[in-house]
Design a protein around this nucleic acid. Structure first.
Length: 729
RNA sequence: GCCACCGUAGCUCAGUGGUAGAGCACACCCUUGGUAAGGGUGAGGUCGAGGGUUCAAUCCCCUUCGGUGGCUCCA
C-alpha cells in the first residue's frame, strides 16, 4: 500500500507503487494529458524546496508527497519545473538534430538554465556551425517534435554503463558518468528519444517530459565557445544556446521581454540620452563621460560626499601612477601583472637597455626584480617569503619604472604612514574618488559595467583591532543608505571567504579567522539574506560584496567592504598605543558604489534612463506655447536656475505637442507648459514624466520651491513630497 | 585571449558586383499653434581600416580595428 499526499492535502492510496502518470490519471483525464512530470518528497515535505523532480514514468515506491508538474500552476503562473523539463528535453532534441545534420559531432553536456538551455558539443575538425544554420536545425528539431517520440529511461549497472560508454568512445560522456559515480550514483541512466537501441539516446540523469510532442515552442538562440570543464587548457567546445516553452505565446512573450531588456540596456540608453561615449580612438573600455552623464556621476559623488563628511572621513587626492617599488611592496606587482597596463619605463633607461642588447625576456625579469635589501626587509616583515630569491638582483640591473595605478590602497597607506598616529586618532578614514586602470581581457569588456579605466568611490580606514567590527558596520550602513535612496532592493550580499585549499592568500590564518568572523557578524546586521562563499575573498582579506543583476540577467559586483590584515604589514604601518608601544593597524577597504562607471551603468538600467529628479541631467523643461510666452518662460527658468535647478526653455517653433514629445524622449522628469493664460495668472501647467496628462496648474513660486525641495531631499520620482505627488493627490 | 555574429549619414536602419537611400536629428523658410510629431527646402556618407579577386567591390576573399552574445578572467 502506497499513500500519496497531494498538494491540497488529500491522500490517495494505491495497492502497488504507481507511476506519477498513474497518479495523475487517477485524479483526472485532463491532468493525465497535461502532466509533464512530478515533484516527490517524503510525506509532508516542502516539495518546492526538498522535493525531487521526476519523470511521469517514475514509480513511487513508498508513502510520499507528490505535486504533478504541468505547464501552468493551478494559479495560472508558468511552472519553473515544467520549463526545466521542457528545456532539458529540448536540449536532447536539439542535440539529435545537430548530430543528424553534422555527423561526427560529440556531445558533452546540455543543462537547462533559468531562461534557456545550452548543449556543449565538439565539432569534428574543420566543421563549424554558423548562425545561418539555425533555421535548418530548427526544422530538424520540428520533425523530431512532430514525431512525438517518448523519452524512455533505462538504467545500467555502473560497470555495464561504463563499458558501453568506453565502447562508444566518447571521453566526454565517460567523464560525465565517472563524475556521477563519484557523486554517489548507484547506476547510470540513459534517455532514448523513442525506443532504446533503435532511436537516438543520451547518457542523462533526467528527468524529461514524457514525449517530444510536449515541447510546444522552441528556438535556437546563439552560438558561443566554451572550454571543457571550463578549463582553457582542455578542448574548446561549441556551445549552442536555445530555449523552449510550453506554448508559442510564452516564446513570443520571452522575445518581447528580451526586446524590452535591450531598450533598457545602459549601452542603448547611454547613446540615446547622451550619457557617455566610448571612442575607438581613445581606447576600448575607456569611458568618456559626456556633460549629461557627468551630471549623474557628480550628483552621486556629492550625495556620498555628504554622507562621508557625516561619518568623519577625510578627502584626499593621489596621482594616477606610482613607482613600481610601491606595488612591489604592496604585492600587486608582479602578482597581478597580467591584469595591469604594462609598466612605464623611463626613456633613458629603455635606451640604455636597448643599447646593451637586453632581450625582451630579460627586460621583463629586470622589471620584476628587487634589491637584496628590499627582499630581506619585506620577507622579514611578513614572516614569509613573499619575494622569491629569483627576483633578487644586483642594484645596477634594477630598472625603475611606474605603473598606472590598479588600486588606490598603496597610495593611501603611504598617506597614513606620512605622519605618526596615536591610538586616540584612530580610525583614520581616507576617501578618494580614485581612478584606477586594469587590463581586462578584450572579450570581457562591456559598456560601462566592465571597463579598463574606472573611478572607485574608494576609502581606506586605518583602525585598531578592537574597532574592526564597528567600522565594517559603518561601511555597510553607507551601502544601505545608497541602496535605499535609489530604491534598489534587488541585490544580494556575498561574504567572500578563503578557499580552504587556496594558496594565493597572504597573511596570518588566525587574523583571517578574526576578519572573516567580523564580516559575517556585520552582514548579519543587514537584515537581508547573505551567502558565504569560500574562494571569493581577495588575496589580502575577506570581504562583503553587494551584487546586482543587469537587464539581461548578468550579475555585477557593486559595493564592497574588505578587511585587510596584510597591507599594514607590508607597508610597516603603525600607531602608538596606550602602552606607548607601536601597534599594527588593520586596514578596511571599502567602495559603496564600487566604481562610478559600473554603478552608473547599472543605475541607468535600474531607472531605465528615467532618473529621479535630483539625478536627472535636466530637471525641468519649460515649454512656451508660442513666442509670445517666451519672456515668461525665460523668467521661470531664471528662477529655477537661481535655486540650482537644471532647467531650460524649448524655444523651438514647434507646437507644444512636439515639444512634449521631445522632452518625454529625453526622459526629463518635469515639463512646465506656459502660455498667455499661465503668464497672466502667474502659474505653470505641470507635466510629470510617465504621466500622459496635464497635472494641473501650480503657482509660479510654489513650483520653483517644490522642485528645489524635491531635489534637496533626493526623492524618488512620484514619492510623497514630490511635485508630482502633490499634483496627483 | 577563445568561438559565433555584426560594422552603411549624428542616431535607428534599408539596399546593390556598375562608386548609395529612408525616418529622426541638424540648418533655413512658412506657420504663433494649449498638452506625445504642422508644412516646405537644404546640408550631411572614402558604405570601420588595409590588402586581394574583378574591366568594375560598399557587396566576394584575406588581414586588421571596433562592437555584441557567450567562455575564461575579474586584486
Amino acid at each position: 500500500m502506497v499513500r500519496i499526499t497531494l498538494p491540497d492535502g488529500s491522500v490517495k492510496e494505491f495497492a502497488n507503487a504507481p507511476t506519477v502518470g498513474e497518479v495523475a490519471a487517477s485524479i483526472g483525464a485532463g491532468l493525465a494529458k497535461s502532466a509533464l512530470g512530478g515533484r516527490v518528497g517524503t510525506t509532508g515535505a516542502n516539495l518546492a524546496k526538498d522535493g525531487e523532480l521526476v519523470d511521469l514514468a517514475h514509480p513511487i515506491e513508498s508513502d510520499s508527497s507528490l505535486a504533478i508538474v504541468t505547464a501552468k500552476n493551478r494559479d495560472g503562473t508558468v511552472s519553473p519545473d515544467a520549463l526545466y523539463l521542457l528545456r532539458h528535453s529540448c536540449a536532447h532534441v536539439m542535440a539529435e538534430a545537430i548530430q543528424r545534420l553534422y555527423p561526427g559531432v560529440q556531445l558533452v553536456y546540455g543543462p537547462p538554465l533559468e531562461t534557456n538551455f545550452y548543449y556543449d558539443m565538439l565539432f569534428p575538425d574543420g566543421k563549424v556551425m554558423s548562425a545561418d544554420d539555425f533555421e535548418k536545425v530548427e526544422a530538424e528539431m520540428a520533425k523530431i517534435v512532430a514525431e512525438n517520440r517518448p523519452f524512455t529511461r533505462y538504467e545500467l549497472p555502473i560497470a555495464d554503463g561504463i563499458a558501453k560508454l568506453e565502447k562508444e568512445g566518447s571521453k566526454f560522456k565517460l567523464d560525465n558518468a565517472q563524475r556521477a559515480v563519484e557523486a554517489g550514483s548507484k547506476s547510470l541512466s540513459w534517455y532514448a528519444t523513442g525506443e532504446p537501441g533503435k532511436n537516438w539516446e543520451d547518457l542523462c540523469r533526467g528527468p524529461h517530459v514524457p514525449a517530444t510532442g510536449k515541447i510546444g515552442a522552441f528556438k535556437v538562440l546563439s552560438l558561443a565557445s566554451s572550454y571543457w570543464k571550463g578549463d582553457e587548457k582542455l578542448d574548446r567546445l561549441t556551445r549552442v544556446y536555445g530555449t523552449a516553452f510550453a506554448t508559442k505565446e510564452e516564446l513570443e512573450q520571452y522575445a518581447r521581454l528580451q526586446e524590452e531588456a535591450r531598450r533598457r540596456d545602459h549601452r542603448t540608453l547611454g547613446k540615446q540620452l547622451r550619457l557617455f561615449h566610448i571612442d575607438e580612438m581613445v581606447g576600448q573600455g575607456l569611458i568618456l563621460w559626456t556633460p549629461k552623464g557627468s551630471i549623474v556621476r557628480n550628483e552621486l559623488q556629492n550625495f556620498i560626499g555628504t554622507e562621508l563628511r557625516k561619518q568623519g572621513y577625510h578627502q584626499v587626492y593621489t596621482p594616477h601612477i606610482g613607482k613600481l617599488d610601491l606595488y612591489k611592496t604592496s604585492g600587486h606587482f608582479p602578482y597581478y601583472k597580467e591584469s595591469q597596463f604594462p609598466a612605464i619605463v623611463e626613456g633613458d633607461d629603455l635606451t640604455k637597455l636597448c643599447d646593451s642588447g637586453c632581450s625582451c625576456g630579460e627586460l621583463v625579469a629586470r622589471i620584476d626584480g628587487v634589491s637584496a635589501q628590499f627582499a630581506r626587509e619585506l620577507n622579514e616583515r611578513t614572516g614569509r617569503e613573499v619575494i622569491a630569491q629569483d627576483r633578487v638582483m644586483d642594484a645596477d640591473k634594477l630598472i625603475n619604472g611606474f605603473l598606472l595605478k590598479p588600486m588606490n590602497c598603496p597610495h593611501h597607506a603611504k598617506i597614513f604612514a606620512s605622519e605618526p598616529h596615536s591610538y586616540r586618532d584612530l580610525p583614520v578614514r581616507l576617501a578618494e574618488f580614485g581612478t584606477v586602470y586594469r587590463w581586462e581581457q578584450s572579450g570581457e569588456l562591456n559598456g560601462m559595467t566592465r571597463v579598463r579605466g574606472f573611478t572607485q568611490d574608494d576609502a581606506h580606514l586605518f583602525v585598531r583591532e578592537d574597532q574592526v567590527a564597528e567600522e565594517v558596520l559603518g561601511c555597510l550602513s553607507l551601502v544601505k543608505i545608497i541602496f535605499a535612496t535609489l530604491g534598489m532592493h534587488e541585490y544580494r550580499v556575498r561574504v567572500g571567504l578563503r578557499d580552504p585549499d587556496g594558496t594565493k592568500y597572504v597573511g596570518d590564518p588566525a587574523n583571517w579567522d578574526k576578519a572573516e568572523q567580523a564580516c559575517r557578524d556585520a552582514a548579519k546586521t543587514l537584515g537581508v539574506p547573505f551567502s558565504e562563499e569560500p574562494g571569493e575573498a581577495a588575496f589580502y582579506g575577506p570581504k562583503i560584496d553587494f551584487v546586482v543583476k543587469d537587464v539581461i540577467g548578468r550579475s555585477w559586483q557593486l559595493g564592497t567592504v574588505q578587511v585587510d590584515y596584510n597591507l599594514p604589514v607590508r607597508f610597516d604601518l603603525s600607531y602608538t598605543g596606550q602602552d606607548n608601544k607601536p601597534h599594527r593597524p588593520v586596514m578596511i577597504h571599502r567602495a559603496p558604489f564600487g566604481s562610478m562607471e559600473r554603478f552608473c551603468g547599472v543605475l541607468i538600467e535600474h531607472f531605465a534612463g528615467a532618473f529621479p529628479c535630483w539625478l536627472s541631467p535636466e530637471q525641468v523643461r519649460v515649454l512656451p506655447i508660442s513666442e509670445k510666452s517666451a519672456p515668461y518662460a525665460d523668467e521661470l527658468v531664471a528662477a529655477l536656475k537661481a535655486r540650482g535647478v537644471r532647467a531650460s526653455v524649448d524655444h523651438g517653433n514647434d507646437r507644444v505637442q512636439a515639444k512634449i514629445k521631445v522632452a518625454a524622449e529625453e526622459k526629463i522628469p518635469y515639463m512646465a507648459v506656459v502660455g498667455p493664460r499661465d503668464a497672466e495668472n502667474r502659474v505653470v501647467s505641470v507635466r510629470a514624466r510617465g504621466v500622459e496628462a496635464n497635472l494641473g496648474e501650480m503657482p509660479f513660486d510654489a513650483f520653483v520651491a517644490g522642485i528645489a525641495a524635491e531635489i534637496d531631499a533626493r526623492l524618488l520620482s512620484g514619492a510623497p513630497g514630490t511635485v508630482q505627488a502633490a499634483l496627483t493627490k
